[in-house]
């Protein structure tokens, strides 16, 4: 490790080897042992900042009351139903299915409702076009029936005569 590399390392991670990246730790420690005075000089400013940050650190304690509050809330909250959905592999390290939230039955109902609406819309358009033409078909059919009825009536009257 060079002087510049060591300087970059401590200005990024501070002077405590435990915070250094594992792959650089050994070579950095070798550098400090081989260049003790130089390393001490580089460490000087960063060590002050580390000490100030250490002084502002908060003790981490288990909060029993908070834990009890969360467990009570959980007992009164149902878990989401398990939805077996095949998802494609991706390189996102940790995730829910979309935006940190799993798909819910409501989301699926929305999709179904949208499909239903589209189908109804298509049906309505098709129905309209058929209805528009059907007036002519109806008129033709009625005329056909009328003419047939007339000719039948004529034939009936002719045969009676």
């Amino acid at each position: 490790m060079t002087k510049q590399q060591y300087q970059d390392l401590v200005s990024t991670y501070g002077v405590h080897p435990a915070r250094w990246p594992e792959d650089l730790r050994l070579s950095a420690l070798t550098f400090t042992q081989a260049n003790q005075d130089l390393a001490a000089k580089i460490n000087e400013g960063e060590a002050v900042l580390d000490s100030l940050l250490d002084a502002a650190s908060l003790p981490e304690t288990v909060n029993d009351l908070l834990m009890a509050r969360i467990i009570t809330a959980a007992k009164n909250t149902p878990q989401q139903e398990f939805l077996h959905i095949e998802t494609p592999a991706n390189d996102h390290p940790t995730r829910f299915l979309a935006d940190d939230e799993p798909p819910t039955p409501i989301t699926n109902w929305k999709k179904m409702a949208a499909t239903l609406l589209i189908t109804m819309g298509i049906g309505f358009v098709l129905g309209q076009s058929l209805t528009a033409n059907s007036e002519y078909y109806m008129a033709d059919t009625l005329l056909a029936f009328n003419s047939e009825a007339e000719s039948s009536a004529n034939l009936w009257s002719e045969s009676n005569q």
Binding site: L66, A73, Q79, Q80, A89, D91, P93, T94, F96, P102
Partner: peptide, 24 residues
């Protein structure tokens, strides 16, 4: 903190990982 663990509780049945740790 409460909200984080309530989310963990509610979504546990559907949690999926792409390879990283759950704590992440």
């Amino acid at each position: 903190a409460q909200e984080v663990f309530m989310k963990a509780w509610k979504h546990a049945p559907n949690w999926q990982s792409g390879g990283a740790k759950y704590s992440t």
